[in-house]
Design a protein around this nucleic acid. Sequence first.
RNA 1: CAAAUUUGAGCUUAU
Length: 387
Amino acid sequence: RMELTNLMKDFGYMKQTDLALDVLHWMKKQKGRLKPNRHVYTSIIGVLGRAGMVSKAREIFDSEELKALESVNLYNAMMGVYVKSGFFKRAWKLYEELCERGLKADEVTFNTLFCGLAKTENPVQLAEKLFRKMKQTGVSAGSYTYNTLIMLFSKAGNYKAAETILEEMRSTDHLPDLCSFNTLINMYARSGKHEEAVRVFSTIKRAGLKPDIVTFTNLIQMFNQAHMLEKAVDSFADMQESGCKPDLMTYSLMVHVHGRAGKPKEAEQALRQMQQAGYRPNVVTWSSLIQVYGKQGMLAELNSCFAEMQKSGCKPDATLYNIMMNAYGQVSLPSQAACLFRQMQSQGIQPSEACYNTMIHAYAQGGKLEEAQAVSRQMVRAGFGPD
RNA sequence: CAAAUUUGAGCUUAU
């Protein structure tokens, strides 16, 4: 039965919910120990929730064989489904229902509610109230819950409340962990408080913990957004020195960072490093590099890069074509841009609104107003509003 | 652990 449960979950991760459901139905027809128990049901509800199949999950939750089961975990699972899909009210109703049935809400129940609250308008007051209630009913918070609360307060932009939770953690057996610190760093990063973010970063080491890829991508992203590009590069170096391996996203981000700094050589290096690390650049990575060449007017490099990308089996998309069209527009070669515009369509790639705008600009810049208007009409025909 | 928590990458427009 355990293996079948895992099989169901695997199907879920492979986005094969119908197969997962088949397993469940098969199990229902069996006798004895192969019959689904509450673990199986909580699993399948979780799987359906991840796939966004809320009503299917609810259908199972409401089914006859589960009616009689008095399981908080089933409630937790179903509440999790609602929370994931943004239906906090429904999750809350289930919470009330389980209380009425005399079941005892546990830490996961409260934690799930906090998660749901975090997505609502004014979570802070309610969260504090619920947190008090949780303690009153004798449920004590573990790191998981503390971290959820930090996340909630940080999403609400309430730095003080978030830091207060951190303080509370220090006074318990549940010392702040990497997740706590990462969440705080993200909070400060999002609001452009670099010094604060860096301060928390240094706290990590003092706590005897090792920053991980989440920590570093938070910092790199923050410096990138603040146009503090050298700092972003420094953080990337720190990351590698500390033995933390960048992944595809991190490398792609670095290509972009170097590009913004106007450094095509370094941008390419980032891509090469990525390949050496065993990652295959995807269309985003290539696009980032191609854009760098475009901005620098390095059209020869741009073209060879595009060729290399295609040779590697990576397919261009509308964004990439737009990047290249824009590159040609910038150097007053609208005819080249137009060539790419036709090429993308002949390959069955639908131009996005941005593509039309780029073409209009390319023509307008070269004084080719007739052509610009023609594109504008095409754009309207393609269903994009004029402006 | 059957359920719950943190970061993410590319395009147009004087951004």
